[in-house]
Amino acid sequence: MATRSSLPRTVAAHAILITWTVIALFPVFVILINSFKSRRAIFAEPLALPTPATFDLVGYTTVLRQGDFLQYFQNSMVVTVASLFFVLLFGAMAAFALSEYRFRGNLLMGLYLALGIMIPIRLGTVAILDLMVSAGLVNTLAALILVYTAQGLPLAVFILSEFMRTVSDDLKNAGRIDGLSEYRIFFTLVLPLVRPAMATVAVFTMIPIWNDLWFPLILAPAETTKTITLGSQVFIGQFVTNWNAVLAALSLAILPVLILYLIFSRQLIRGITAGAVK
């Protein structure tokens, strides 16, 4: 009975999803195909795939001669992964405290931590720079990790405490009756149950960190600490009329995060489904 009515519905669902997938991927596709073409072919046939006649790697050779993209990529990885780790650990701990225990100042503490969702941390840039100068952290990746951890925490606490409220009290109380400490309850009972929320928070925290231009420019602009976003922005600024080089640089900036995301999305899907099945 269900299959009879669901065929047209399935077709419609696929049609909508395919349409939006094409819209989503089209611009990325345009950059990637044109980065492999000669200058003339980019202008003559922007939508054509590279053919043997128009294939040209001149953009990539220019980019690789000019910039240290491997170093930039490594810096971005270190900053993103370290910040993500601290945001998830500290954020989940604080969210658990806020959603699980009733104590004086609970609501106030929740509002205090939520304040950071509303205000862009960039407003405090001048004071942050002063702080990093006096701590001797300018042009280190540690400065970026500290800033991004602070930036990511409010949203992480907000979303995670929202999800932790739905974890059943019976389960936690059963753990308490079995003599588990509050720390064990948090790490072994609650954390596994909020994994889908953790994966969601991870993705939302990772993206702005990876793509940020502002703090790398101000706190760590040195050649050895440049992130990939800053590196490619500087490169685009220098080569603005050299379209081959710009398109190649954009492709190189897209590919690492794309690969990272494709690896990560497996975890994300596993996390989401594991949570849903329970």
Binding site: M93, I121, G124, I128, V157
Partner: peptide
Amino acid sequence: PAVLVYTAIMIVPL
């Protein structure tokens, strides 16, 4: 941990 990092890097400069 969350409150300390958040206060020192975000709230005070803001």
